[in-house]
């Protein structure tokens, strides 16, 4: 019962692959959204120059593109992107591994569940971001503290979904293993873990979003580099075009990560129909 409460806070239902999507509507959908985007950008550009909106309030799209290219050419964006990218991916991987392992322990051993679960429920509702300043104090301004923050923020959806997924195994499959005399570890490996994968992936998809969030907020709280740090710097200098340029980078980063996740998911969960 507690699991369900905790689960409703962060978790999406297991997603299904959309392999049978018809081709035609997809093509025209893309066309429509590209056209819509172009229209919006044109209006924006036109409005900014027509009303002579100052750059530090709302820069024109052309100014953002210019800033983006300048940042990329000077190497500043690349350097900071690598920092944020590394933090995010490393923290996410830690969250994925530790979250799955801890979830497995909770689901498999009643003692672990009794000891750990109340803590999980309590921590689940706590905004993990609020711990970020503390982590910065303990672990410093470098990359390490951000990896910890990212892992902390991203671990909960993985953990809770792993527990859910492992517990959701239907009795028939477990009976089948039991009738053959399979041990606990073998049943876990052969039946429960694969059965939980769709749930775990639903958790990982949430975790990816949380990881980027944790990375940027961690940098806001205290950092020497990274895209979040760049945003803060640009903010102090009223360089709004640069803020937008970094946001574009962050958006592309998010899309890249979710594409990778989608790819892995389609490979691993092709049977989940």
């Amino acid at each position: 019962m507690q699991i369900e409460q905790a689960q409703s806070a962060t978790i999406a239902a297991p997603t299904r692959s959309r392999k049978n999507r018809p081709i035609r509507p997809f093509v025209s959908d893309t066309a429509i959204s590209v056209l819509g985007f172009l229209a919006l950008v044109s209006i924006w550009e036109g409005a900014v120059s027509a009303f002579q909106v100052p750059d530090f309030v709302l820069p024109a799209p052309s100014a953002i593109v210019t800033s983006l290219f300048q940042g990329l050419a000077s190497g500043v964006f690349v350097r900071n992107f690598l920092v944020t990218g590394f933090q995010t991916v490393a923290g996410f991987l830690v969250a994925a591994l530790v979250g799955t392992a801890l979830g497995a322990l909770v689901a498999q051993f009643a003692i672990v569940e009794r000891v750990v679960y109340p803590w999980l429920v309590a921590l689940q509702t706590l905004p993990k971001i609020a711990i970020a300043p503390l982590i910065i104090i303990w672990a410093g301004y470098g990359i390490g503290s951000k990896v910890i923050i990212v892992a902390l923020v991203a671990i909960f959806p993985v953990l809770v979904n792993t527990i859910m997924g492992l517990k959701s195994c239907d009795r028939g499959k477990l009976d089948l293993m039991r009738s053959l005399g399979a041990g606990r570890w073998e049943t876990f490996r052969v039946v429960q873990l694969p059965n939980a994968l769709p749930f775990i992936f639903a958790g990982l998809n949430v975790a990816i979003v949380m990881a980027i969030l944790g990375s940027i907020v961690g940098e806001f709280v205290g950092s020497k580099s990274g895209l979040g740090n760049l945003i803060l710097e640009a903010n102090f200098q009223f360089d709004v075009a640069r803020i937008f340029a970094v946001l574009v980078l962050l958006g592309l980063f998010g899309v890249l990560l979710s594409q990778i996740m989608g790819f892995v998911q389609r490979r691993l969960l092709f049977w989940n129909k």
Binding site: G172, K173, D175, L176, M177, L180, V190, P194, W271, N272
Partner: peptide, 29 residues
């Protein structure tokens, strides 16, 4: 245990295993 084989009402195949791997499950365990 080896002397008993069970067919459940629900086929209870493991969806992530192909047909051959499913049939081989008891032999594996």
């Amino acid at each position: 245990r080896r002397n008993v084989g069970i067919v459940f009402q629900d086929s209870n195949l493991l969806p992530w295993r192909n047909i051959l791997q499913n049939v081989l499950l008891p032999a594996q365990v």
